[in-house]
């Protein structure tokens, strides 16, 4: 099954070329030009991974990361940035970013991270389902 990816960047040409390359590799790609747009998309659709630029007009990467994690904690977010400081990377990881890549990113490395993100998300969803079943059984049993 192909990976379902949401690509968020305010650079229109970067979005076009990245989605073209990802689609060539069989990924299913949706694009958003702002964090606000991304937030409204994730309300309606589910994704294996979100690839998001860290610096965008309006809501910045850190705010967007918090908002997405707040809405969908299971979502795997890989951050892309022009320059990554150690401080920002650590802060983003603490909030819940899955990974961090500096632009220009190695496409093969990114594709690998997307695959890993999908596997991690499946594990989280499985665990959540298991918890729910346990909870239902507990309530029925007692």
């Amino acid at each position: 099954m192909s990976e379902k990816v949401l690509l968020v960047d305010d650079e229109k040409e970067f979005l076009e070329i990245m989605s073209e390359r990802m689609e060539e590799r069989g990924m299913e790609v949706t694009t958003a030009e702002s964090a606000d747009q991304a937030l409204s998309i994730i309300e309606k659709e589910s994704f294996d991974a979100i690839i998001m630029d860290f610096q965008m007009p309006g809501m910045d990467g850190m705010e967007a990361l918090k908002a997405i994690k707040n809405k969908k904690p299971e979502l795997q977010i890989i951050l892309l940035t022009g320059y990554a400081t150690v401080e920002k990377t650590v802060e983003a990881m603490k909030i819940g970013a899955t990974d961090f890549l500096e632009k220009p990113a190695d496409f093969e490395a990114l594709a690998e991270k997307i695959k890993k993100a999908k596997a991690d998300k499946m594990l989280i969803v499985e665990k959540q389902t298991e918890e729910k079943i346990k909870d239902i059984l507990k309530r029925l049993g007692g």
Partner: peptide
Amino acid sequence: THEIKNALATISENVGLMED
């Protein structure tokens, strides 16, 4: 330099597409 990096990232992806 951030803006230059963005331009380089798009160039890099276009080169990658040529290779693909």
